[in-house]
Design a binder for these strands. Structure first.
Lengths: 128, 128
DNA sequence: GTCAGAATTGACTTTTACGTAAAGGCGATG
DNA sequence: CATCGCCTTTACGTAAAAGTCAATTCTGAC
């Protein structure tokens, strides 16, 4: 496991700009360490970037992603906070389950659409 | 099945604003008929709104949603167009499968996070 | 017919998530 | 030493997706 990644290494790996990574840092999603002014990304930072990109693909906003990332961290020490956290996690999961239903429906409709196209091609005497 | 829905009926059903529905019309996603200047939404328009909201929840942009909606329509008559359409559908499906992987991973991590919280509560002697 | 409530258009504003340009620091290499 | 390539901050710009507001116009109920 590498010790540090430079900002451009990560931009290449995840196909995003340096601006984007700095923006995520401003937004409190990342906190790479510094050598002088230069950012050094640890493997854990790189993993955070992965999670951020995953969140993006699922259509979560920056603040939603921030919330989700909070959930992955060490659980809080206080009972009230813990219970609150559990409730929030359950909400996010419900959110994701809705997305899953949406996803399956969309996939099913696309399957149907493709089938129609294939049939139409067959009618036209094209061998698929 | 109702014949027509008013704009406000749909805003209430889907919890969106009239501005949003008109915006979708401007963007070519909807084309309700008119009585005078007033929009009348048919069941098919209402169904389109459902599909749009689904797309939104999955993080698709307006133009991606427009593309997907195109795919649900009658398949084109020309062989080249049909083959192109099939390729596009396959791309969208790959996109959705990626989202599904992202989703499952996120759900798994949230499960883990919740478990940590529950354990922590147990340590603190709280009965869940 | 009139009057409140709903609907319309059009213009301007806002939020999010970056893009882009300016101006320059730091270290290696020819 | 100069010039790459990579890194930095600061600041303004922008596209997408609506929100908001104003000025009208319908229209259904009384």
């Amino acid at each position: 496991m590498r010790e540090y990644y430079s900002i451009t290494e990560l931009t290449r790996e995840f196909d995003i700009s340096t601006r984007t990574l700095r923006f995520y840092e401003d937004e409190g999603l990342l906190a790479p360490i510094r050598r002088g002014r230069t950012r050094l990304f640890r493997p854990s930072d790189r993993h955070l970037v992965k999670q951020i990109m995953r969140g993006k693909r699922l259509g979560f906003s920056i603040s939603e992603i921030r919330e989700i990332i909070q959930m992955y961290k060490e659980p809080p020490g206080e009972v009230g906070q813990l219970k609150l956290m559990i409730r929030r996690i359950e909400e996010k999961r419900e959110d994701l389950r809705q997305k899953r239903r949406d996803l399956e429906e969309t996939l099913a409709e696309l399957d149907q659409a493709e089938e129609s196209c294939v049939e139409r091609l067959a009618e036209l005497g094209v061998n698929t």
